[in-house]
Design a binder for these strands. Sequence first.
DNA 1: GTCTATATGGGGATAGAC
DNA 2: GTCTATCCCCATATAGAC
Lengths: 212, 212
Amino acid sequence: MPKEIHATKLAILKATERLVAAHGFEATSLRAITAAAKVNLAAVNYHFSTKDALILAMLNRRLGPINEARLLLLDQFEQEAGEKPVALEKILEALFRPVLDKVSGRSHGGRDFLRLLGLALSEPSAYLKPLVEKEFSEKTRRFHRALRRALPDLSECEAYWRLHFAHGVFLHTVTHSEVLECTSRGRCRISDREATLQRIIHFCAAGLRSAA
Amino acid sequence: MPKEIHATKLAILKATERLVAAHGFEATSLRAITAAAKVNLAAVNYHFSTKDALILAMLNRRLGPINEARLLLLDQFEQEAGEKPVALEKILEALFRPVLDKVSGRSHGGRDFLRLLGLALSEPSAYLKPLVEKEFSEKTRRFHRALRRALPDLSECEAYWRLHFAHGVFLHTVTHSEVLECTSRGRCRISDREATLQRIIHFCAAGLRSAA
DNA sequence: GTCTATATGGGGATAGAC
DNA sequence: GTCTATCCCCATATAGAC
């Protein structure tokens, strides 16, 4: 774990995060990034070699800690449960809360990160592949195991499907909250994160528990 | 409804669909599109004025018919139900089946379209706004009404939330099927569309029905 | 490590002949 | 409606001074 990152490098990473979230990968130029970070254009190539490597570094910087936090929280719930399986709602909380925490944590980069998540998943280029395989596969397996302990009647395959569904609920909700606010004509607001989290967990738990 | 579209215009639309699905909006150049469509570069500007207008035309060409089909199917189910509210599972079927039908309909452009859906929703630029407002708002309202008739205990606001959740399940599943296939190490396959549809409907129905 | 200056290529859009 | 040729801008990346 590298502790002290160069100020320039960090500034570039932060600016990249903000601008890519606002305009997308391809539409964000290194010129715009270096201008926003108030560093020289050539600094990007010096610190990250290429633009693609910069994007990957930026994504890893955020996704790594989140998946660690998810696993830690699951660990904690498993310890608290002792011999018994972790309650379904707790599993879902371990899966989703760390994402929302990272979002509301600091003032800067809050909401932006959620857009990044959606973008990274939808980008057809090669960004996704190494990310999914490296960062997500262990996490998915751990949660899959916990899920099967909580719901022993679910087949292995069915558990994968439903975990995928639950992810869909969460990701779509947080990455496209504007759509909900628009179609409900302002009646639904995502601003109360705790209430939103409970709503999502409640919906997913019911779906996961339903008889096969 | 314009019946006869110029052959050139149609070729451009098809090529755009395929290339954008494969590489994303910004990464797809007009030069690549016209080369694939075997038409002249200037034809794009002649028929569509700008690249952005071309993208919008391409999206509308696909999304319009799908939302029409959704409403028609809902109409049909409402007639069949007579005075009674439409069953929850039927509402969900009307919402999701037309998308899958369009996908498996023709040989070309099948799977590609699903990527477009995900891309269009994640693109931070202005593509989304007019599309959501024009094509989706009426559809959402109709389905929202049907949902409240089927589940009278749900508050208006809660119904919007859960409809949003159901959309998330469906969209995430179809746009990111590779993720599921990857994390489940091949155990789950999306190829059986009918089974997938039933799985999604089953999960969503349970979530929608759960007590508030 | 940081900067200026530049190489090199590709992009969208258009003018004007046919 | 279709083509060629071109304008003009912006992109990434690098070379080389400091």
